[in-house]
Structure formats: structure tokens, C-alpha cells
């Protein structure tokens, strides 16, 4: 189980981006983290996975615990070995490697036999049958949806206990987003992998995950079960684009930024 306690993150020793973020991901659960651009969602994920260090960032206060062990002072590869894998935003691939080589890179740190690895690759193909047809293709030339599948599949190869997904819906067609989220849910339910999901697409995130946190300017401003949050008037208005009656909103009706101020600062 992941526990983030009141962390502060500073970039380049001066820029304070997270100002006391706390959240929890219970075993086998799927939790989403919502928020506007620049709210600090990706930074939170990087703080957990340790990748912050490669970008001159640092956790200056608070602690991050995984299965009772503090991980905020570990290096990214040590954290991966504990079972936390981050799927970085923008689905970065090893473009010149083939699809299957990309999948293999996910398991490089494990001392698994080639038979086990072959089984794990089969498991990825079970979730993403389409990748099987492209196994020897250079991954850089595949479509965005297929690349997203590779990236999630590659993370799965690490046999993680917790997967940190950063905006899997980015730049994908609505149909594909549905598909991908369906598979993410399937992975969560079939393999028991806990998932912490960062999304801009609040609609689908609230439908898929059981619990959600909302971030604004570097802190958590709201949290609750997805069912609760979908009923919350502010969430409906700011994230789901609906008014309280459930109609489509017109910009004329509200000066929503005035009410939004309540969250900022």
C-alpha cells in the first residue's frame, strides 16, 4: 500500500511545486488524481517513482511510504525493484527497438528466466492482442493508441504491485480512450495491480477508478469516492462540464473563476 504524507517538492532548490500533498492507494485499488495543467499531478507521480531526482527536483518535507517502508530517499531503479512502476506521460518508447524488445526492457531488472519472460510477454499479448501482430515492428512507427498499449504492456512486464499511469488518454480518439481504460480496469481486476491514475479526462477517470483526489496549485483540495465526487457540484462544473441540473454549461451563465478562487491559495 502506498501512503504519501504531506510532501513538499521543490525544483532547482527554489520553485515550490507541491505544498503538502497527502494521498493513499490501498492494495488492489484504483485511485485517480485529477487536476488542471500545472496542478502538480505529474510531479506527485515523479516524487513517488523517484524520477524527480533526474529533473533537479527534491522532496523537502513529508514522507512517502510503500508497504511500510520509506521510499522518498531511494533511486528510481530501487523503487522499481520494490514494485512501483511509472508510465511516463506522453507514452515515451524506445523508438528504434521493436515492440517485443520494448516489452523486454520492462523486465530487464528482474532476474527471470527466459521462459518466465516469454510467459509474461504472452500475458501482455493477452491484454493487448493487437501488439502480437506488430511484435517485430519498429515501435516508433506505430500509431498513438498502439504506442500507449506498448507503454502499459512494458510496465506490466515489471510485474508491479503498483502502477503509476500518467495521462493514458493523452491525444487519443474517444473510442480508443474507452478501450484503453477498459484494459486498465481489466489489469487492475485480473492481476490485482494497484493503480494510481493521473488524468485530465475527469469523466472517464471517475468512471474507472473507485476513489479520486483533486489537486489544485500543488495541494489536494478534495477527495472522496468517485460516486461522491461525480455528484459534487464543483466537480461537475469544473471537470465534467455540466451545470448542477446536468445540462451543458454556457460560459455566459457563470463567472466560475470567482468561485474557483476558494480553492486556490
Amino acid at each position: 500500500m502506498l501512503k504519501v504524507n504531506n510532501i513538499e517538492v521543490v525544483y532547482s532548490d527554489v520553485i515550490l511545486v507541491l505544498r503538502g500533498v497527502s494521498l493513499e492507494v490501498p492494495d488492489g485499488q484504483m485511485v485517480s488524481l485529477l487536476g488542471a495543467n500545472g496542478a502538480g499531478k505529474s510531479t506527485t507521480l515523479k516524487a513517488i517513482s523517484g524520477l524527480l531526482r533526474t529533473q533537479e527536483g527534491e522532496v523537502t518535507r513529508g514522507s512517502i511510504e510503500f508497504d511500510g517502508q520509506r521510499i522518498d530517499n531511494l533511486t528510481p531503479d530501487e523503487i522499481v525493484r520494490l514494485g512501483i512502476v511509472q508510465v511516463i506521460e506522453g507514452r515515451p518508447l524506445f523508438q528504434h527497438l521493436t515492440v517485443e524488445e520494448n516489452l523486454r526492457t520492462g523486465a530487464l531488472f528482474r532476474s527471470a528466466s527466459s521462459k518466465e519472460i516469454a510467459q509474461d510477454i504472452e500475458r501482455v499479448y493477452h491484454f493487448f492482442p493487437r501488439l502480437r501482430d506488430f511484435r517485430t515492428r519498429t515501435s516508433g512507427y506505430l500509431s498513438g493508441g498502439e504506442q500507449q498499449m506498448i507503454v502499459i504492456g512494458r510496465a506490466l512486464m515489471a510485474k508491479p504491485k503498483l502502477m503509476l499511469l500518467d495521462e493514458p488518454s493523452l491525444g487519443l480518439a474517444p473510442m480508443l480512450v474507452q478501450d484503453i481504460f477498459g484494459i486498465i480496469k481489466q489489469i487492475n481486476e485480473e492481476s490485482g495491480v494497484s493503480i494510481l491514475l493521473v488524468e485530465q479526462n475527469a469523466n472517464i477517470a471517475l468512471k474507472t477508478a473507485g476513489y479520486a483526489y483533486v489537486m489544485e496549485s500543488g495541494r489536494i483540495v478534495l477527495d472522496g469516492s468517485s460516486a461522491q465526487l461525480s455528484q459534487n457540484a464543483d466537480i461537475k462544473e469544473f471537470y465534467l462540464g455540466l451545470t448542477s441540473v446536468g445540462e451543458r454549461k454556457s460560459y455566459r451563465d457563470v463567472k466560475h473563476y470567482k468561485r474557483r478562487k476558494r480553492w486556490i491559495g
Binding site: 528510481p76 531503479d77 512502476v85 528504434h96 527497438l97 524488445e101 520492462g106 530487464l108 531488472f109
Partner: peptide, 21 residues
């Protein structure tokens, strides 16, 4: 060899896959 090829493409990504860069 695979770790080396992966690392050459993207250090940060390689790190996030648990490769000791």
C-alpha cells in the same frame, strides 16, 4: 545489450524501467 540500446535512446525512461543507467 538490450539495456544499453534502451539507455541510449532515453536515459530517464530507462531509469523508470529499473535499469541502472
Amino acid at each position: 545489450g538490450l539495456a544499453m540500446r534502451a539507455t541510449s535512446e532515453n536515459h530517464e525512461l530507462a531509469q523508470s524501467m529499473g535499469i541502472k543507467v
